[in-house]
Simulated scan of single mutants.
Amino acid sequence: MLISFLFVLGILLTVTQAHFFQPSYSCNKGYEPSRYNPRQCVDIDECASGRNPCQHFCVNSQGSFECSCKSGFVVSRQDNTKCVASGGSSCRPGYKPSVFDPDECEDIDECADQVNRRCEHVCVNSRGSFECSCNPGYVVSKSNPTRCVAGQGCRAGFRPSIFDPDECEDIDECATANGNCQDTCTNSRGSYECSCKPGRTVSSSDPSRCVVVSSCKSGFRPSVADPR
Rank of each mutant, 00 (worst) to 15 (best):
K217C: 04
S188Q: 10
Q152L: 03
F220R: 10
V213S: 07
S141M: 11
T186G: 01
T186W: 01
R189E: 13
D170K: 08
A177K: 02
D206K: 14
C154Y: 04
A156D: 08
I171G: 07
E167F: 08
K217I: 00
P207A: 13
D183G: 00
C210M: 13
C174A: 09
Y192E: 12
Y192H: 14
D183L: 00
P145M: 02
D164M: 02
K197A: 11
S195G: 05
C148S: 09
F158W: 09
V212A: 03
C185H: 10
C154G: 05
C216Y: 03
C168V: 09
E173I: 09
C216I: 03
A150M: 04
D170H: 06
S195P: 04
R189N: 11
A177L: 09
T184W: 05
G219F: 12
E169L: 06
V213Y: 01
T146H: 13
R189W: 05
K142F: 13
P145W: 02
S218Y: 14
C194T: 08
S208R: 15
S215K: 10
G153I: 00
D183N: 03
S204R: 15
C148P: 06
I162V: 12
V149M: 08
C174T: 06
R221Y: 07
G157K: 01
F158P: 00
D164F: 00
C194Y: 05
G151A: 15
V140H: 04
S161P: 09
S141F: 12
S214V: 01
N144P: 03
G151K: 14
V140N: 02
G153W: 00
T176M: 11
G151S: 15
P207Y: 08
C216W: 01
P165K: 11
C185W: 09
R147K: 15
N144I: 01
V211G: 04
E169C: 02
C181Q: 04
E173G: 07
C181E: 00
F163I: 11
N178E: 05
S195L: 02
R155V: 03
D170N: 14
D172R: 02
S203W: 14
V212E: 04
E169G: 00
S203V: 12
G151P: 00
V140M: 12
